[in-house]
Design a protein around this nucleic acid. Structure first.
Length: 465
RNA sequence: GGCGGCAUAGCCAAGUGGUAAGGCAGAGGCCUGCAAAGCCUUUAUUCCCCGGUUCGAAUCCGGGUGCCGCCUCCA
């Protein structure tokens, strides 16, 4: 069995065949850093994190590049509204973005190219497109002439001729100078509203269009032809179609083999929107006291092509699931003596996990396999038949699977301080004297302080509530 | 108007032709001085609705309903 991905290009699950054996080059569309990212954005980055981690788990040497869009309409508008410079804004929100992905345990990409650091690359690509006859100019702006790229629409399976101008109601078609509404801007001539935001280049005074950055930067960092390109489903058209048009027309070579698109996240069964009051940034959720790992679990646990529903109830369920994992690890750590090496259970778990993940990253099935494993091993721990070797094997398996999911690691909790341990000892003494009222009072007081006591055959265990 | 996705228990969510994974929550039990944790049993005769194909459908087909996405810069 090999890794299979649902490829938007073929609309099938295709076996993953890398261009270079053993390597996987991934480009993922990153954030526009004009505000704090919301949990819908993080769902996409979480899926990409899972993809990257799983390919690493499967032995691929992965190179992951994510762009940062730091020049674009919304940013320029924000500059105008706040009086801040582009640099001030984007540095602030880029910083916030990195803090957030660290909080969620999302691995850092190998490179985060920012658009404004690659103006020359974009200018070069636009010049190449111009030389090859794929562009035209109107009022100082340069447009891509779609009619010169017959394959347009192959990814989203849209017939370019049927596109309805302004069909989304988002755009006033009259604002555009393109010959045809479906043509898109490669280079936008400066106008007053752009203020300080412009570059003087061979193409004139202006700024790059949005789509060109991803073509220019992905090619710079991953080559003309690379393996995997990801993004939200909403980016499939037109952004990714436009990327394909630019890249293929510029290089004359194939561009990307596998396009993977992530479905949207809904909140409480509705589209996330500020007016519904269900719009959450990661920071909002942390302020409400939610555990970042539980948020990670919640965003991760639904298959990436499935529209997911984010609820506080689901985060609570995730918190409990993580607690179950934590308690399982604690039991394993305490296991001593000879006994079952748990090889059968470990092998069955890993096999099921890999089988499901190979199937287009079926994380829900894979997590189910791990919980079955936890139950089976708990049973043996109850029976006292598992030994230290088995516990080590089980912990090693959890660590391997944690490298893929980020939800099976040892909880990084502080050890109970001496005063708490003294209380626990005092309670044990009371229990020995059959003074259960005193023992229970101590237990209640400790629980109040955030520590829970569990009595085991080997003595009392204290852990964070 | 065009194109596409989704609809599985109280909640989250796998399963895409062979008789409903898993997590959370609930109920009962074992264990415990009592708890907690763990384990066991239980919780959808049924997978949005109506038809059809089939020996057999949550899974395929047709028609509805609802939610969501894209149709020029939203993950």
């Amino acid at each position: 069995m090999t890794v299979h991905f649902y490829n938007s290009l073929t609309r099938r699950k295709d076996p993953f065949e890398p261009i270079t054996a053993g390597k996987a080059a991934i480009y993922t569309c990153g954030p526009t850093i004009y505000n704090f990212a919301h949990i819908g954005n993080f769902r996409a980055y979480m899926f990409e994190d899972l993809l990257r981690r799983y390919l690493m788990f499967r032995g691929y040497d992965v190179k992951h590049v994510m762009n940062l869009t730091d020049v674009e309409d919304k940013l320029i508008r924000t500059c105008r509204e706040t009086g801040k410079s582009l640099k001030e804004l984007t540095e602030f929100y880029a910083q916030a973005f990195f803090e957030d992905i660290d909080t969620l345990g999302i691995l850092r990409a190998h490179a985060y190219p920012a658009a404004t650091d690659h103006i020359p690359e974009m200018v070069d690509m636009i010049k190449t497109l111009r030389e090859k006859g794929h562009t035209y100019e109107a009022k100082g702006s340069i447009y891509f002439k779609l009619s010169t790229f017959p394959d347009y629409g192959a990814l989203s399976h849209i017939d370019a001729d049927t596109l309805r101008t302004g069909g989304s109601g988002r755009v006033d078609a009259d604002e555009y100078e393109a010959e045809e509404a479906r043509d898109f801007a490669l280079w936008k001539a400066w106008d007053e509203d752009d203020g300080e935001v412009f570059w003087e280049t061979e193409l004139g005074k202006g700024r790059p269009g949005w789509h060109i950055e991803c073509s220019a930067m992905s090619i710079k960092y991953l080559g003309n032809h690379f393996d995997i390109h990801c993004g939200g489903i909403d980016n499939m058209f037109p952004h990714h179609e436009n990327e394909i048009a630019q890249a293929r027309c510029a290089t004359g070579q194939p561009f990307v083999n596998y396009w993977l698109h992530c479905a949207h996240l809904m909140v409480d069964g509705r589209k996330m929107s500020k007016s519904l009051g269900n719009f959450h940034t990661l920071r909002d959720l942390l302020e409400k006291g939610l555990d970042p790992r539980a948020i990670r679990y919640t965003l991760l646990a639904t298959h990436y092509r499935q529209p997911a529903n984010f609820t506080f109830e689901a985060v609570e369920a995730a918190t409990q699931a993580l607690r179950r994992i934590r308690d399982f690890r604690i039991r394993l750590a305490e296991t001593t003596g000879e006994g079952d090496a748990l090889q059968e259970e470990c092998a069955a778990c890993e096999k099921a996990f890999v089988r499901d993940m190979d199937d287009d990253l079926n994380i829900s099935g894979a997590l189910g396999a791990v919980f079955n494993f936890i139950r089976d091993v708990n049973k043996k721990l109850d029976a006292g038949s598992a030994g230290r070797e088995g516990a080590d094997n089980a912990l090693a398996l959890l660590d391997r699977l944690d490298a893929v999911t980020g939800v099976f690691a040892e909880a990084d909790e502080e050890a109970a301080p001496q005063e708490i341990l003294d209380q626990v000892a005092a309670r044990q003494e009371a229990r020995r004297n059959k003074d259960f009222a005193a023992a229970d009072a101590i237990r209640d007081a400790l629980l109040e302080a955030g520590w829970v006591i569990e009595d085991t055959p080997d003595g009392a265990r204290v852990k964070r509530a």
